[in-house]
Every structure is written in C-alpha cells, then in structure tokens.
Design a protein around this nucleic acid. Structure first.
Lengths: 352, 352
DNA sequence: CTGAAAGCGCTTACAG
DNA sequence: CTGAAAGCGCTTACAG
C-alpha cells in the first residue's frame, strides 16, 4: 500500500480510499458496501468490511452528509435545564430522536436570548435537519420568524408563539391551573393565592387565567395581593409562602406556577412548623417525577413531560417527512393528580 | 445573476459562490471576509457582507470543517439525565463548552451500554473534536479503550475507569460518605444503615467504603442487613426506609447513596408520620440544588455538580490543546453540608 | 457486479 | 489586495 502517511496512527483518519486500496476495489465499491447496497457481491463486501475493520476505519458521516445534502442531526434548544420539567422533556425528545436514527445537538440558553440566538445560528451552520426549541423568555418573534422563513423545519414547544403558523407542541396551561384551583375550592378553600412570576409571558398569563377563571366561576373574589410575584425557583416558592402567610386575612391554600415553586413552598411550610395538606394546601404544575416523592407528596397538574418531549420530536419528524403540510398544533390536556399536599382547610367552610 | 435555481427559496442553500457572484469577487475573497481576514480591503469586505445578508446566506460550517479537518463539536454522553445531579453536571459542561466556542452533541444512554455504543460511534462519525462521557453501568473497558486508542480526545467523568490512563474528572466518593457517616456518629447515632445498590460498580464500592471506614474507626459494628440494597431512585429510597424501619434493632439513621435516594427516604418518613432530623436521621450525596429545599432541608455531601461539569469541560479543552500531555486526573474533595435532616437520635447515647 | 469522474461547500497555499 | 486551482471524504449517476 503506497501511502506517504506512515501508518494511520492516532488522529490521521483513514478514508474509503485507503480501504479501497487495501481491499483492491474502487472507492465507489467501498461506499456501496458501507451503505449496505445489494449490488455488491457478498465476497467483495466481506473483503471490504474486513479491510475497513483492520484499518480501524470510521465512517465520515459529515462528508457523506455534505455530498448528500442532508443530515441526521437535530438541534434542541432548552431554556432552563435546571428545572426537572425541562430535563424530563429533553429526555423524552432525545430518546425518540435516536430511535429514529437522529442525533441531537443540544444547547441550554438559561433564558438568555442572546445565547439562544448564537446557538441557533450555530445549529443552522451545522446544517441541523431540524430544530426543536423551547424559547427563552422574551424571544423576539423576528428570530423565530427568520428561521421559519429560511425553511429550516422547526417545532416550538411548551411556550406558544403568538403566530399560529409555527409547528407547536404544548399543553393546555389554563385548563391545568383551572383544575387545580377548582379542586382546592372543592376542598373548602376560599382564600387561595397564586404564586407565579408576573410578566412571565404567555404561559404565565394562561396559568393565571385558569386560576382566575375557577375563582370567578364560584364567584370568589380574589384580592390583588393573592397574586404573589416571585421568581420561578424553589427559593421563589419559599418566599411566596412567607409572603402569603403574612397576608391578612391569610389565604389557606396556594396554586403554584409550577412544581419547582411548589417544592420550595413545601420546604418553607415545613420550616414554619406547618404541614402541607393539613395546615395549608398547595398544588404544583408539571408533574415531574419528583412531585410524587416530596414530603408530603404533591398534588399537581400532570403534563407528562417526557411524553410531551416525545410528541415534539414526533411533530418534527412528521414535518421532516412532509415539508409542505399545514402547521402542526398539538396541545395536550393536562390531568390533575391529587396527592397529599392539598387537603381541606383546618376549619372547613371558612368564608372569604 | 445567472442561476438556474430560480431564487434561493426555502431549502435551496445559498453558497459562497453565489455571494461571490453577487459581490463581483471570487469565492476566495468571500471566504476570507467570512473569516474576518485583515487582508481584504474594507470596502470589498463590506460589499461581500451586504451581498451575503441580502441573499440570506448561512455559513456552511460542516463544509468548512471538512476542508479544515477539524470541528467545534464535542460529544457528551450522560447515563442518567433523570437524576438532577447529571442534569446539573450537563448544564455546567455545556455552558463552559459554548463559552469556548464549541457546541454539544448530547446523548442520554439511560444506563444502556448498547445505546451508549451506538451514540458514541455516531459522535465519532460526526467527527466530534472530543468526548466527555459518564459511562453507563457495566461499560466494557474495551469500549473506552477503543476510543482512547483511536486518538479521539475523551474525558471520563464521575465514574472512574480502572485504568489510570484515561483523563478523568470526578469526586472523592469515599471521603464523602465517610464525612456523612462520621457526622451521624458524632450526633450520637450508633446503628446507621446505608442505602445503596449492591453491585453498582466502583462508585458504590467507594461510597460504601467511606461508610464502613467511619464505622470501623469508632469501632462500631455494622450488621449485614444495614447495607440495604435498593434501586437508585426515589422509589428505591422509600423502599430502603421501609426496610430499615422494619429492622430489629432499628437503625436510627441512614446514609443514602445519593440525593435522589434521600429524597425518597424523606418522603417515606413523612408518610410514616416521622420527621427526618428528629425521629430519624438521613444524609444524601451529590448536593443538587433541590437538596436545600426539601422538607426538611437535606444534610448532604456537596459535590457541586455544575462545577464538576465545568471542570470536565476544562479538562477536555486542555486535552485538545495538548494532545500529548500526561493523563489528567482531577478528583475534587466533596464537602458535607449539614442541614436539618440529620439531628441526634431521639434518646441520644443509645448504645449499639 | 464494479470503476472513473464529477461535485457537495468550503479553505488554503500559491500567484500575481 | 484578489483570483485560480486543488482538495477535504464522501455519493451518485453513468458506463461497461
């Protein structure tokens, strides 16, 4: 074998040209056997495979993709991986994607729109076949629009864009908090707080709307200070409970924006010597795995994050298969799961 | 502009050839301005940029990388993203990597060695410049070795391989459980259980060794049934507590393999009407963010997962910079953080 | 059943 | 300061 690079050591990659030489066939033949083409005679194919193996050949999919004008990589951008909801969502989509033969380019924006823009262009420069994005707070519509116009298949997830032209997979936020609030009312609560982040975008609006809707339906007034503005973290949940307990008259329950906030609420309640579900009721939103194993276990709105992620992946796969199909829009109905954090108020029937 | 493709719509990508034509320069010039070369006259550069902008040109980094024989993508493989420890680890490494101008190809193996092998080859086929891997349970040494021999830079993290030839970034598991156990003993506990997964590999061995070491140092016997074999999940933690409470004589404390197990333990204790920290003591391991906000807050061994991830990324970056340097080995010292889940036994001083 | 040739979108010496 | 040419590692008609 004439080859000026003395022996393909470490970083010098061996190419099909070299295996072709070793197997005494042409590049074309090697390429064909690598693709499992039935055109090649079994013995030839075997010889090629042996040669490839012996040389430690690794397929250069990048080169193949360049030539073929396609890739099997999908870009995933997540806004908040520290929240288990998004971690579970990611797990669900990534799994579905590998099952379908794709691999994921993943980036975490941590709610930074600048970072989001950078990673998105990077993914497009790497020719991602498609994109799944959970937009960071305050994502300019122009960004999403630019991608859509460029023709790169994209599904937006969790946070619905204003424009219905996007492929979107999410959950019905309003129905979720409606169910949680209605449950609390049914348990006998009348003064119910809502812990969330004011100005948190469409998702916040929708979740609050569900809460307000349920209250209004039973003709329960809601005092403005019951909408407690906190950061959407466990710390925020703690603070929210502290502020709620300081209110006069004191609410007896709180609908939390999400599970992470509820976790903080549960923790703070414990520190105050109160037992959630007995002394004060709390509900979460998301239904992350951890919610079933808090102390006490959390009543929450189950959105099945992993399934949601898989659904987003499916939507993208579908879009890849039919680029011209009308916009996909899948909004799942969340389900309230009653556990122990949401018992009736201490003296049931306390009026407002 | 003569161009048989009528107008670069949707998926038809525009190339440097087209912007070259539009700007009346050669491909070379376009390439140079794209790279920010100072060789090009400012006016020319500006003209090229305008043309690129106008045509909606997106840089094809894949083609550039192919030609340049390098990439800016790093493969990350994680064994268990459902565990917040790994999610936080991932966040730490991904952030550091984007800061350094890389983008991450991420895959979750869910402890499947088969899947792990597939994603690893996929990453190499895509010419990842380097790899960071948290090996799945039971990863054959041959797999890691094949990668090392191939010359692809790789750092192994969290789970130490037997062979010291690998670049490795992790934490001192034995010191961690030693500290947790010693703390419990100091609080007055004598009968202390260890909840973990027997046969869980090197990490389990090390964590158990720390527990046994601390017990032996105070000449405390450990009954074989105190080593409770469970799955490493919240469910496992619940079951572990149930089995521990059924033991005679009953242990008064439990060192948990990790935080997730401890979360389950806390939850189960609550369901049994017991208060962790008062009626029974528990410690965790990892120091995930959630540990500070459980009910009650969890005493745990803090490993600073995000920092660990960043350190793993740094190690890889370093390896990329000096391929021939001797193996990197960074084992951080974890720190015990005492919170409320680990108070003294009900009647302090109870003998063994 | 197999090979020679062209081309995917870039970069990089090398001229001028 | 700019252009022509070769080449990165593949695939894919097209011959034979």
């Amino acid at each position: 074998v004439k080859n000026d690079r003395s022996r393909p050591s470490s970083r010098t990659s061996v190419t099909i040209t070299e295996v072709a030489a070793a197997a005494n066939v042409s590049k074309s033949t090697v390429s064909l056997v690598l693709q499992g083409s039935p055109l090649i005679a079994p013995e030839t194919a075997e010889r090629v495979r042996q040669a490839a193996q012996a040389l430690g050949y690794v397929y250069n999919r990048r080169a193949a993709d360049l030539r073929r004008q396609s890739t099997k990589v999908i870009g995933i951008v997540i806004n908040d991986l520290a929240n288990p909801f998004f971690a579970e969502l990611l797990v669900g989509m990534e799994r579905r994607l590998v099952e379908a033969g794709y691999i994921s380019l993943m980036a975490h924006t941590d709610e930074s729109v600048d970072l989001q823009e950078r990673v998105l262009t990077s993914m497009r420069e790497y020719n991602a076949a498609g994109l799944i994005v959970c937009p960071a707070f305050g994502t300019p519509d122009a960004l999403l629009k630019a991608i859509r116009v460029s023709g790169t298949p994209m599904v937006v997830t969790v946070r619905p864009p204003d424009d219905p032209a996007y492929d979107f997979v999410g959950t019905n936020h309003e129905r979720g908090t409606y169910a949680a609030t209605a449950h609390l009312i049914q348990q006998g609560h009348r003064r119910i707080a809502f812990l969330g982040r004011v100005g948190g975008g469409a998702v916040f609006e929708q979740r609050r709307a569900g809460y307000l809707g349920a209250m209004a339906e039973r003709s329960l007034e809601v005092m403005s200070q019951w909408i407690v503005d906190i950061s959407l973290t466990r710390e925020g949940g703690r603070e929210g409970i502290r502020r709620t307990l300081a209110l006069v008259p004191q609410p007896t329950a709180a609908v939390c924006y999400n599970d992470v906030v509820a976790f903080g609420a549960l923790s703070e309640l414990g520190e105050q010597g109160l037992r959630a579900g007995r002394d004060f009721a709390v509900t979460g939103f998301d239904g992350v795995i951890a919610a079933a194993h808090t102390n006490p276990p959390l009543t929450t709105v189950e959105t099945r994050p992993a399934e949601l992620g898989a659904a987003a992946a499916d939507a993208l796969l579908q879009r890849l298969a039919s680029p011209e199909a009308p916009p996909i829009r899948r909004v799942s109905e969340p389900r309230l799961v009653v556990r122990q954090s949401s018992g009736p108020p201490l003296r049931a029937g306390t009026g407002s």
